[in-house]
């Protein structure tokens, strides 16, 4: 029987034999891909809904003023997110202010100045900073950085800057070591690798022709950096900073160790404070089911979600506008 089939017939038979399996397996495969894509969306939706729904009673109890009220009293069950929102934003902003110039320096050094032999070790070292678990940063911060800051950084700053009006308010209080500034410094180290990596990418994408032309007309290294490289990648760099900010906002363990954990509002950078994430980590184990405290913590989680979302959306927007141009 097989002998009677000619070449073309054999081909059609083969195709016919294989096509049906493709007709079934392909939709299944596509379906699976859809499912994995949708899964993420559904999961995210569930998490947001759960946080909001779980925290709703707290929002009902305290009204919208929950968001800015600075009261956090577990005894009388009066809760507000003001101190934590302030602490979250301030510590993240300090982190970015410290990390930004460092990242600029490292990134430009790596792309322009560093000899080939040095480029890799420094690059790897920065990547390794990103691989250190957050709890290690916390322990190192608590046992090494906090005592150093308490002994050598805070006393002179309090003495020199404390008496100056206005600015002095930032440098008040006993030299505890742990506080908003220390938390910001540790956070700066933690977001440094991410910002630097993106800066390197942006600087590498600057067309060599532009830089060479600038050097050609006699520009110095600094002038090329200042007037060619940075303006070329400005938007993408702002996006990178926003991503770093997003990471700093949600950091929990390291911050809990070094921020001093006080639910009081204070203008001083040396005063202990709290972030949303650190408060949740501290209070969650003792929050019993159905208690107002647990609901307030869930609502705090939702607020953190919203803040992170805004920052992330802004960074996306900036990076995308760069890509379009």
């Amino acid at each position: 029987m097989a002998a009677s089939i000619s070449g073309t017939e054999a081909n059609t038979a083969l195709i016919a034999a294989h096509k049906p399996t493709g007709r079934i397996s392909d939709p299944i495969f596509v379906g699976l891909l859809w499912a994995s894509g949708i899964f993420v969306l559904v999961l995210l939706g569930f998490i947001i809904a759960m946080l909001f729904e779980g925290g709703l009673p707290a929002l009902r109890e305290f009204g919208i003023s929950f968001v800015w009220s600075t009261m956090w009293n577990p005894v009388t069950e009066r809760f507000g997110a003001g101190v934590m929102v302030y602490g979250t934003v301030l510590s993240a902003v300090i982190a970015v202010i410290v990390a930004l110039p460092l990242s600029f320096g490292i990134a430009f050094f790596l792309t322009e100045i560093a000899p080939g032999r040095l480029r890799r070790p420094i690059g790897v070292a920065i990547q390794l900073l990103a691989a250190i678990p957050s709890i290690i940063y916390g322990m190192w911060g608590f046992f090494v950085v906090v005592p150093l800051i308490a002994a050598y950084v805070q006393p002179p700053l309090i003495e020199w800057l404390g008496p100056i009006p206005l600015i002095g308010a930032l440098f008040q209080g006993p030299p505890l070591g742990a506080g908003m500034l220390t938390a910001g410094l540790i956070l700066a180290l933690m977001i440094l690798p991410f910002i630097t990596a993106m800066f390197v990418e942006v600087l590498e994408s600057v067309p060599p022709m532009l830089k060479e032309s600038a050097y050609g007309v006699g520009a110095t290294t600094y002038e090329v950096y200042r007037n060619v490289s940075v303006p070329y990648g400005r938007t993408a760099m702002v996006g990178a900073v926003m991503l770093g900010l997003g990471r700093a906002l949600g950091e929990t363990m390291a911050v809990t160790f070094v921020i001093g954990n006080a639910t009081r509002m204070s203008a001083s950078l040396f005063a202990p404070g709290a972030t949303i994430a650190s408060t949740i980590a501290n209070e969650f184990p003792e929050a019993s089911i159905g208690s107002l405290k647990l609901q307030a913590l869930l609502q705090l989680g939702f607020i953190l979600f919203v803040i992170s979302f805004i920052v992330l959306a802004l960074s996306r927007l900036l990076v995308r506008s760069k890509l379009k141009s």
Partner: peptide, 28 residues
């Protein structure tokens, strides 16, 4: 202030766990 597993502390700094308190007191 009152009494509870956590309160709104009017002064001072917080540290995590017994070891956190012991460490902070030792450092300060």
């Amino acid at each position: 202030v009152g009494a509870a597993t956590s309160v709104q502390w009017p002064a001072g700094a917080g540290a995590k766990g017994n070891e956190g308190i012991a460490g902070t007191v030792k450092n300060t």
